[in-house]
Write a protein that binds this DNA or RNA. Structure first.
Lengths: 248, 248
DNA sequence: CCTTATTGTGTCAACCTGACATTAAGATAG
DNA sequence: CTATCTTAATGTCAGGTTGACACAATAAGG
């Protein structure tokens, strides 16, 4: 698709921090730019006749193929200094954008940051865009070199996710439909970056009355097979709405 | 100051929801437009070479005369439908803006919402801008007719303030330097829109160890004179940073 | 100096939390 | 098949926190 900048809202972009959870680590879906040893957040521009939220949804869909994903706008990054003077030229020099687009990319941009919570395994084929050669999950704790302020956007997203933990359905969106208590705990421990007592976690989680125990167990692991749970959607949303009281 | 739209970031504005607390009510500082029976949030445009946060600070300063006020960006309002087709024409028709500015005002805008917490009494002379005839406090529960989506911006600000209560220094910014325990409680009750037990509130608040009791009392009230407190700034900021645990 | 309204302080049972011990169950090795 | 290893599930207990409420202290006003 050729970029028709006339139809775009000037100086406004959208960047998505797409979180996944795998092997007890928080991952972020990133793009590696062609011919440049730098990575970038999946992002997009907003058409003049398009809701900003809408473009965030589109970005997510283009990179992951998924729809109806949890997506939350968390901050507008609006500092002048986030625009590096030579950035557009650099992009042109590495044939990442057409020379005609230099001026468009050279203007001052503000960007709306969104974070998404997706189930890692559902993203089978992360799709690079025209300017990138790789689209893949990167560990939050081992981020590559990134363009502009994208690294700090990710940090901010994580920081805010932590604060909003008790108001956001992270379990529902980052885990598969059925999951074990240890898996749920590992997720919370990872997001919060601290360890929690197994037995107390279980007790508290169950007390929220949002989990339904199935009669299945996860076999195949090397030890005692844990029970599988799934969320009671109605109760979950109700509980999240008022916040899981008294945090972790 | 004549508006030089060339120097402005296109399609981007800033709106401030300025909260004050008076007579046990949350108030919002609003502007009444000239020749129109509608009110508006104090707002501004962002220069191309200006941080978005910066303009929010300026808006606050222009309307209240105050600096170093608590200010927090809470949402970017980015729906296309928030721009009403006839709005710019209406503004011109009522001589609120010059005809030359019609096109500038007619473009599609996204607006960054900020909320500010200010001590009611410090705003001695709320200052209208060129397009408005009155700048005054309005009760959050008795809002006048407002332009565009400004009413919903206020609602959203209040909703988010509630959620972030335990992370935001509302006492410090909405109350005078010295205040009584009942005043502090009234503030929390007002923001949360629910009543709290006097004795339990006091116990909990004191347990945070952020208050310093003075030896003065507030006399003149019709009954027993309550003690005056002030915040231990250092401890307050430290406590707020990690959140006042286990909310109200 | 007595009434009234409000503030300051205390108590108590119920509940929640953090720390830890014990038992149950699946996988694997011999 | 059994011993062993590892992890899951459950229980306990002391200490802290919460919610509900009683009562004494005190300023203002008649």
């Amino acid at each position: 698709m050729p970029l028709n900048t006339d139809k775009l809202h000037p100086g406004l972009s959208v960047d998505c921090v797409i979180f996944g959870f795998h092997e007890n680590e928080l991952k972020v879906l990133l793009l590696k730019l062609k011919r440049l040893n730098q990575w970038a957040l999946p992002g997009g521009f907003v058409a003049r006749d398009q809701d900003v939220d809408d473009e965030a949804v589109n970005v997510l869909k283009r990179r992951t193929g998924l729809e109806n994903i949890f997506l939350h706008q968390f901050h507008l990054f609006g500092r002048v200094s986030r625009n590096e003077p030579g950035h557009a030229d650099n992009m042109v020099a590495h044939q990442l954008i057409e020379p005609e687009l230099r001026d468009w990319f050279d203007q001052r941009f503000v960007t709306a940051g969104y974070y998404a919570l997706v189930e890692y395994r559902r993203v089978m084929e992360p799709t690079p865009d025209l300017t990138s050669e790789i689209c893949e999950w990167k560990s939050l704790h081992d981020l590559p070199v990134m363009i502009l302020d994208h690294q700090s956007i990710i940090r901010k997203a994580h920081e805010i996710l932590k604060k909003e933990l008790n108001h956001q359905p992270i379990g529902l969106n980052l885990l598969p439909d059925r999951f074990t208590m240890p898996e749920l705990q590992a997720l919370y421990e990872t997001v919060l970056e601290k360890s929690l007592d197994r037995r107390n976690f279980r007790r508290k989680m169950l007390s929220y009355d949002i989990l339904v125990q199935t009669n299945e167990r996860r076999t195949g692991g090397a030890h005692k097979a844990p029970m599988l749970y799934h969320f009671d959607l109605e109760k979950y949303h109700f509980a999240i709405e008022k916040g899981l009281k008294s945090g972790w």
